[in-house]
């Protein structure tokens, strides 16, 4: 059996930019795969948790009930949970809607938008479609988050520094490499 640490990732209300930045660690992936196996993640297309995971990376804030469910499952199945990027940390650009009533947001997006054909002016609703929340919430307001890597997206260096430290059981030192944009 391998002694490698395991990592899981997910994108909630995010744009996958943080995952793209994660991929920007480039040749350090060679070192990373020596240290970890990537479990449930859009990168592996593994859908569910089949075992307990050491480190979970969360991209995006919480904008609907499915995000809440997924985030809680990550908390239950990961020893360490990391908010990756501005959206996970403070809602990010999706949270720009937080001061606009949800009704107005939906009507603007689906009824008043000029690109919708007149005959199809409906607000989508179905039991299989996640229910949108009143606001976009930072992940740490829904579950306990252990570490935060700011940035939009966080630089590949900051992701690498944090991951490498946590894999080796050390505290991540992000001073000098982090940003908020």
């Amino acid at each position: 059996m391998t002694n490698k640490k395991s990592v899981a990732t997910i994108s909630l209300a995010g744009c996958f930019g943080c995952h793209m930045s994660f991929c920007d660690i480039d040749e350090r992936f060679v070192d990373l795969v020596e240290l970890v196996e990537i479990h449930k993640s859009p990168l592996t297309d593994i859908k569910g948790f089949e075992k307990r995971v050491d480190i979970g990376l969360i991209e995006g804030g919480v904008c609907n009930d499915e995000n809440v469910e997924v985030l809680k499952s990550f908390r239950e199945n990961c020893d360490i949970l990391i908010s990756l990027g501005e959206c996970a940390i403070m809602g990010g650009l999706p949270a720009l809607r937080n001061n606009i009533p949800l009704k107005d947001c939906l009507e603007e997006a689906y009824l008043r938008v000029p690109t919708t054909p007149h005959s199809q002016n409906i607000i989508p609703h179905h039991e299989d479609i996640p229910k949108i929340l009143d606001k976009v919430y930072p992940c740490h307001e829904v579950v306990k988050i252990d570490y935060f890597i700011p940035g939009c997206p966080p630089s590949a260096d900051s992701i690498w520094i944090a991951l490498e430290a946590l894999i080796k059981g050390k505290e991540p030192q992000l001073a000098g490499v982090m940003s908020y944009d």
């Binding site: 001061n99 570490y147 935060f148 890597i149 700011p150 992000l174």
Partner: peptide
Amino acid sequence: EMTVPRFHYRFNN
């Protein structure tokens, strides 16, 4: 070295 504020975001209008 603020990674996240310790207070809740208020999203004031």
